[in-house]
Amino acid sequence: MSDQPRIAPLPEGDCPPGVAGVVAALGPLNIFTTLGKNAELFDAWVGFGGHLLASKTICPRIRELIILRVAARTGCDYERVHHERIGRENGVTEAEIEALGRNLRDYAWDPGEWPVLAAVDELHTTSTISDGTWARLAGVLDEKAIIEVLMLIGQYTMLAFALNAMKVQPESS
């Protein structure tokens, strides 16, 4: 099976206005120049995704733990490569990054982080959250934060599926 992208990214100079603005601000990342081939959908997605990344409802470290676990569960190299760097910037250690790719029980997670990581795994396994995990989430997060955690897991799972299917390649270092 080829690793070549199934949809080639737009050349930087050919980006529609909304895509061009994001590329100017954040760089010509393959995620933007590929998804930007559907400009209307891109505009909606970047607003939602941007809100989740900028939100203060959950701390950036928790957000990055979630994204990295989703990347591991979905085998999404693009998410993993980008969010390992962002995770490090937000306090995720090398040992934790490595542990997120294995059985979660093999690492001594902080009790406040464990329910969030368990939620990622349960959603990926059963498409829901057990009563026990829900109770543990409610013990560490308020309802607003739980909603955001669930939407963040869903957003990055959806994105991973699309990136994997299109074979969007991580940028070269």
Rank of each mutant, 00 (worst) to 15 (best):
D3H: 07
R6N: 05
P9C: 08
L10S: 12
L10K: 06
L10Q: 07
P11Y: 12
E12P: 00
G13H: 14
D14Q: 14
P16W: 06
P17N: 05
V19N: 02
A24Y: 06
A25C: 00
L26E: 04
G27W: 10
L29M: 09
N30C: 01
F32A: 13
T34H: 07
K37R: 15
K37V: 09
A39D: 09
E40T: 14
F42M: 06
V46L: 12
V46Q: 15
G47F: 13
F48P: 01
F48A: 10
F48Q: 06
G49S: 12
G50C: 12
H51C: 12
H51Q: 11
L52Y: 13
L52H: 12
L53P: 00
L53I: 03
C59F: 06
C59H: 03
R63G: 08
L65H: 00
I66W: 01
L68T: 01
R69V: 02
V70R: 01
A71R: 00
A72V: 03
T74C: 04
T74S: 05
C76H: 02
D77M: 13
D77R: 12
E79D: 09
E79Y: 04
V81M: 08
V81P: 02
H83V: 07
R85H: 09
I86A: 06
G87E: 05
R88I: 09
G91L: 09
V92P: 00
V92W: 02
A95L: 11
A95N: 05
I97C: 09
I97Y: 04
E98W: 02
A99F: 02
R102E: 03
N103S: 08
L104E: 07
D106G: 13
D106V: 03
A108S: 03
E113Q: 14
V116C: 14
L117M: 04
L117Y: 06
H124A: 02
I129D: 11
G132W: 11
G132D: 15
T133A: 10
W134H: 14
K144N: 05
A145Y: 13
A145L: 12
I147Y: 15
V149N: 07
M151N: 10
G154K: 01
G154C: 08
Q155C: 13
M158V: 08
A162V: 15
N164S: 04
N164G: 03
M166S: 02
M166H: 00
K167R: 15
V168I: 15
S173F: 14
